[in-house]
């Protein structure tokens, strides 16, 4: 029993390590090509760099951040501090349900609603709204746990001093600062790595300029990986590998940051 389980576990370990290492290693060498981070791709992505995808992903993330953090945070506060128990439970299960909805559905919804109905077209704006629709419940689901973990005594203490709801909430937020930060990082990490929603709503395979306004389409890292792997030949694959490796390294960095934040909290 023990040994069977051990062999299975070691097997899983080897496979996982292989996946991780082979992805990272196959891309890292290309980081050192001249202009890799600063140049535009050329000759059907077989030369040049990933500058526009990098900036595109960055812009998309900034927009998702700007939309989903305020809404998500305020929603979380309502969920954990203000709503009556019943409503709070209902919203919580709603957020949980939305979390289990596959990301392609958010893409399709974004296409029908933001791109077509509201007329935003295939654009940075549609993509970031579709991603935010997905990210907000994710953020709420994770952050609400941290707010709930704040001891009741703290709340009662502040209220007994005559503070109003807003002041009491600020105190709770301060107490759960690290947890909220963790949720935030995980949310952005997830939004960063999603492909399907933006593939449908905002991404173009190739564009000659960066998006100048919100209704311009955008090139991003994940959608470019997809496009290269599926549509282009062997001479362009290095760029997909390099971007994949970069994405994995960024995600590892995010998870490590989350780890550190958690550890800080414990101490």
């Amino acid at each position: 029993m023990r040994w069977t389980l051990r062999i299975i576990s070691y097997g899983v370990f080897v496979v996982m390590l292989f996946v991780l290492v082979s992805i990272v290693v196959s891309g890292v060498p290309y980081f050192f090509r001249p202009g890799f981070f600063t140049a535009w791709p050329q000759r059907a992505m077989s030369e040049g760099g990933i500058f526009p995808m990098l900036i595109g992903s960055l812009m998309l993330m900034s927009l998702v951040f700007a939309i989903s953090v305020p809404v998500g945070l305020i929603g979380t506060i309502f969920l954990s501090e203000l709503a009556p128990r019943r409503i709070s439970m209902f919203l919580k299960s709603l957020a949980g349900t939305m979390n289990s909805v596959p990301s392609i559905v958010y893409g399709v919804f974004g296409l029908a609603f933001f791109s077509v109905k509201l007329g935003f077209g295939t654009s940075l704006l549609s993509a970031s709204l579709a991603l935010s629709t997905m990210s907000i419940p994710f953020f709420m689901n994770s952050a609400v746990e941290f707010l709930r973990a704040v001891p009741k005594e703290l709340r009662e203490g502040v209220i007994s001093l005559g503070a109003n709801k807003l002041q009491a909430t600020l105190m709770v937020l301060r107490a759960s600062k690290n947890g909220i930060l963790t949720s935030l990082m995980l949310t952005l990490g997830r939004a960063f790595s999603e492909t399907a929603p933006i593939l449908v709503t905002g991404a173009v395979f190739y564009s000659t300029k960066l998006p100048g306004k919100l209704t311009d389409p955008v090139m991003t890292l994940p959608t470019s990986i997809y496009a290269i792997v599926m549509n282009l030949g062997e001479r362009s694959q290095w760029m997909a590998k390099a971007m994949a490796s970069l994405m994995v390294l960024i995600m590892i960095a995010v998870y490590s940051l989350v780890q550190i934040t958690r550890r800080n909290k414990r101490e």
Partner: peptide
Amino acid sequence: KEREVLLRILEYVSGIPSVVLGLFGVLI
């Protein structure tokens, strides 16, 4: 030690974007 290492690696793998896993499947 085993537990720590294995959980850590699983966590990192869970962070791999699905499009990157797709690339892994196609190219490797």
